[in-house]
């Protein structure tokens, strides 16, 4: 496995505010990494440090390697400017040059190429993003989705080792966003280039990532496959950020824990007082007039529904198939059908 990006011990403070604290990460070739976290967690700053748009604080042993090249090394005094780092960048506002046509925008990074090669590459990129007919249009004549694709084509045209995408879908409406997300993921996979996304949208992060990097407070909290982070979060923060979670007080006793639901199985063994995290889809609600759980509210989504159930004074969220009907006040029994995590 070759490395597309390796960043080690990067930090950045703005005055008193710590934006990035001792962050390290690694993206393999062809892999899609996603930095996810709440607004202000430092993920965009980290991206800017990697691109060279922002200088890291000069802490010892901090280092950035892109492909085979070391572009930053605090100890050796290496600090390449952004134009020499060979990363592609895609911005939230796309940052297309309004006075250039689509073709000129895509060709902008190819100024050192021969004319023939440049023209061929522009044609190739246009075909790749399926905008062949629009080469001579200006950005303001394109739809949001088309602008997005031009930005991607422009970033990838010079064949960067990695492309960094900063909230690239946040300017689009929801339906288009989902569609384009699939589209972009497909295009990136086709081209085989590594990518690092930044987003605050957990659904987007989970669906895009090969490797998910959860950030908060300037630190990378956990790295891994999306499923792993979702099901086995290393901390309450990660667990709560990535999806609805029931957090219950309990006592772990090896492979199971005791809480308000009684005994629940654990994903990994633990001991002692703990917070037990149970996803709503790990719970089932069985209607039963004599049950000790009572339906409080429900939120119907179409593909499924969330119901809030009160059990011994504790409210729990339960995900249920949309075929069932629940009414507030209805009684039933709760069952845990998947392992929980003790944190």
């Amino acid at each position: 496995m070759t490395i597309a990006l390796r960043a080690e011990r990067l930090s950045r403070c703005f005055g008193e505010v710590v934006a990035v604290s001792n962050a390290s990460l690694e993206i393999a070739s062809g892999e899609i990494g996603v930095l996810v976290g709440p607004s202000g967690c430092g993920k965009s700053t980290l991206l800017r440090l990697i691109a060279g748009l922002e200088p890291p604080d000069p802490s010892p042993k901090s280092r950035i390697q892109i492909g085979e090249r070391v572009v930053y090394d605090s100890d050796k005094g290496i600090d390449l400017p952004p134009d020499q780092r060979l990363v592609g960048l895609v911005f939230q506002d796309y940052a297309l040059f309004p006075h250039m046509t689509v073709a000129e925008n895509i060709a902008f990074g190819l100024h050192t190429w021969s004319r023939q090669a440049r023209e061929a590459r522009v044609r190739e990129m246009l075909a790749w993003v399926r905008l062949e007919g629009l080469a001579q249009r200006y950005p303001h004549e394109l739809s949001g989705g088309q602008q997005q694709r031009v930005a991607l084509a422009r970033a990838l045209a010079p064949r960067p080792t990695i492309v960094l995408l900063d909230e690239p879908f946040s300017n689009l409406d929801h339906a288009l966003r989902v569609e384009l997300r699939e589209d972009v993921r497909e295009l990136l996979k086709q081209s085989g280039v590594a990518a690092l996304f930044v987003t605050h949208d957990r659904e987007e992060a989970l669906s895009l990532a090969d490797t998910l990097l959860m950030m908060d407070g300037g630190c990378i909290l956990q790295t891994g496959a999306p499923q792993q982070l979702y099901l086995e979060p290393a901390s309450i923060q990660v667990g709560r950020f990535l999806g609805e979670a029931n957090l219950l007080a309990g006592v772990a006793q090896g492979s199971y824990a005791v809480c308000v639901l009684g005994e629940v199985p654990l994903q990994r063994t633990a001991h002692g007082m703990a917070t037990i995290l149970i996803r709503p889809e790990a719970l089932e609600f069985h209607p039963d007039a004599n049950g000790d759980a009572v339906v409080e509210r429900r939120l119907f989504f179409g593909h499924d529904q969330l119901i809030s159930v009160k059990l011994d004074g504790v409210s729990l969220l339960v995900r249920a198939s949309s075929t069932f009907s629940f009414a507030p006040g209805q009684r039933g029994r709760l069952r845990c059908i998947a392992p929980a995590v003790a944190l």
Binding site: Q84, D93, A95, P158
Partner: peptide, 29 residues
């Protein structure tokens, strides 16, 4: 204001040095 900061960053990341950024991005706009 017509030149967003990200436009300049995009140009830089595409390998343009300051002179080219000024000439081809700022000046025309």
């Amino acid at each position: 204001e017509k030149v967003s900061p990200s436009m300049e960053m995009a140009a830089r990341s595409l390998g343009a040095r300051t002179g080219r950024v000024l000439r081809q991005v700022y000046l025309p706009l």
